[in-house]
Design a binder for these strands. Structure first.
Lengths: 346, 346
DNA sequence: AGCAATTTTGCAAGCGTTTGCAATAAAAAA
DNA sequence: TTTTTTATTGCAAACGCTTGCAAAATTGCT
């Protein structure tokens, strides 16, 4: 790699190796019908000239771009970070690069989707909760490889990776119940999202199965963000008969809850137990460390990436929907309610 | 955008609009010498056909790729996330896309650098602390636009964005001193890095200027990671005469410190004050919330992106080095040492 | 109306690869 | 040997776009 010149092309390599450029191309793309001695000569020339393939040209000429698009709502989330890490890890095993799009960009999601299909990427990973199903159809029609992460295609005709939201929530509530809580506040996620729906459903089911009445005031609307978590918690704490535990639909809003609890001069878990959902890295950083339902986000990213690559390299593979289990991670933010406290509220 | 077909090319648009393909190209790339009526006709055709430009082809033909490369060590850092957010925000104002590379990938950093110069990106943002200066030279030689973030080119011939590490550390130590601390433990960052060096230097300078002796045992080596922060803190706490405050070179290691302190049955800030550096989002999430030196990471990303774009669009712009100020963010992890505690140690 | 200056438009030649097809060389079979 | 078969290699034609150059229109002045 002595000569590092921008303009070393396949032709230069061909000349250097004394073969035709198509032979060089074949060697480079791992074609089999090349004599070993020739291959070696080409490789040597490549090395000597410091040649690097021009991806753009390669993909224009019909090859693959070697790029995978990742469409996410934003980077300020923790949650996305974990997924991205998983994706990145998986991609590092293959030779794909990652092109990141955040939908807060000015143009519409749909236009990104389209853009990618135009040669920019070989496939796309969608972590776009609020998706307008519209462009998913576009992708499918064009037969462009894509995988949804933590969201589902209502029509069920897309490859997707998600987790057992409902069951996770069910277990969390069951856990709280088991600790002796009888009044459990629930803060929903953004209800347009399937995952938010399922978590609520799981919670309700657990209550029902335990023969507990559901009280409307105990269900407060949130949006998966911290601020709304704080405010929903305030509403819960202001109730004439406040809950002894609060189940927030994700960790971020659980953090808001913890803050609100503290602002009310109460202590977690002493006065109020708090449980979250996701298990983002911060969950074990807060104090007290948050008990939460772990969604294997990085694993989801990894699997999605794998699914996508399979689909890219083998286009007629049927779509697949992988659902990962969640698990309750018990840390220090929950405990049994005090008897006195309970009595007080009777 | 009724017909969404993969293969709508500039030629189709030209036919539809009844003009030549070069005219279409000119309209699309904002060339001026086009009659208004023609432009309109073309734009209509584009709309009608749902045409989307093929970036690969465009960039092959000599245009720009419209992609900016971002080379980072990994995504598991919080620190990187903030920078990336800033970059992303800035990019969203322009029309560049972001291609993400993590160096933990198998190939070497240098090969990525090369790859990008081959048409894949128009410029690159480097957040690669441990950089071997080698490929920076490669980039410079090829006159390929790049900007360093939170790191400096020893030879000082690169555009870069960093912050006043030294001064930030100076102020932090001064603050601790002002609170009455006389024995301050310091946990370094990875000393290969300039920023780690500077933070240590700032700390030492503050001690010196305050007429304080520097005690070797109080300086422990860390590496900017949590685990090492924990262990360095243990070493500090095991000292015959342990410090009353610990200054960790970044927030991540400060978290490790807090953990260690807790593991020793002590309380932050009651028994030991802890101060960090960076102010990553988690800093205000931990309990007690971490007092730290704020480095405007997102702003650094934003500025770096801007610098890079300027450089791309105006190649003979001189290189620039922007250094942002840091600021002390006082939260709850520091307080004055107890007199009794101090006496105990006299 | 005639001519120069200026604005618009179109043609053709790439950009660096991949790949189908055909030609050549080598190996196997007859 | 000669004929088949199979392995190697080269040529040429895309891929979809940008851009220099030249031709065609238009406009402004005499």
């Amino acid at each position: 790699m002595s000569e590092i010149n921008t303009s070393v092309t396949i032709l230069d390599v061909a000349r250097e190796a004394g073969v035709s450029y198509s032979t060089v191309s074949r060697v480079l793309s791992g074609y089999n019908y090349v004599k070993d001695s020739t291959r070696e000569r080409v490789l040597e020339a490549v090395e000597r000239l410091g040649y690097v393939v021009n991806q753009q040209a390669r993909s224009l000429a019909g090859g693959k771009s070697g790029v995978i698009g990742l469409l996410v709502p934003g980077l300020d989330n923790g949650y996305i970070g974990e997924i991205a890490r998983g994706i990145d890890e998986e991609l590092s095993k293959s030779s794909y690069d990652l092109l990141l799009y955040t939908t807060h960009r000015t143009s519409t999601e749909a236009s990104y989707a389209l853009k990618m299909t135009k040669g920019l990427a070989d496939g796309v990973l969608l972590v776009v909760p609020l998706l307008t199903t519209g462009y998913i159809e576009t992708l499918r029609e064009q037969n462009f490889p894509y995988v949804l992460i933590d969201q589902v295609d209502p029509s069920n005709r897309s490859s997707a990776v998600d987790s057992l939201n409902r069951q996770g929530a069910y277990e969390a509530t069951q856990y709280l119940l088991g600790l002796g809580h009888r009044r459990i506040g629930f803060i929903t996620g953004l209800m347009k999202l399937r995952s938010a729906e399922e978590r609520l459903a799981g919670h309700m089911a657990a209550l029902r199965d335990a023969g507990m009445p559901t009280e409307e005031d105990l269900i407060q609307t949130g949006d998966f963000w911290r601020r709304e978590g704080y405010e929903a918690a305030e509403r819960l704490l202001n109730l004439p008969n406040p809950p002894t535990a609060i189940f927030a639909s994700n960790d971020l809003s659980a953090f808001g809850v913890m803050e609100a609890v503290r602002a009310y001069g109460l202590q977690v878990p002493h006065d109020i137990s708090v449980i979250g959902f996701d298990d983002i890295p911060q969950a074990s950083l807060v104090y007290p460390r948050l008990t939460t339902v772990r969604q294997p986000l990085d694993e989801m990213g990894r699997i999605a990436a794998r699914l996508l690559i399979e689909q890219i390299e083998n286009p007629d593979r049927p779509i697949r929907h992988v659902t990962l289990p969640t698990s309750l991670v018990i840390r220090e933010s929950c405990q049994s309610p005090h008897q006195s406290w309970l009595d007080l509220r009777r």
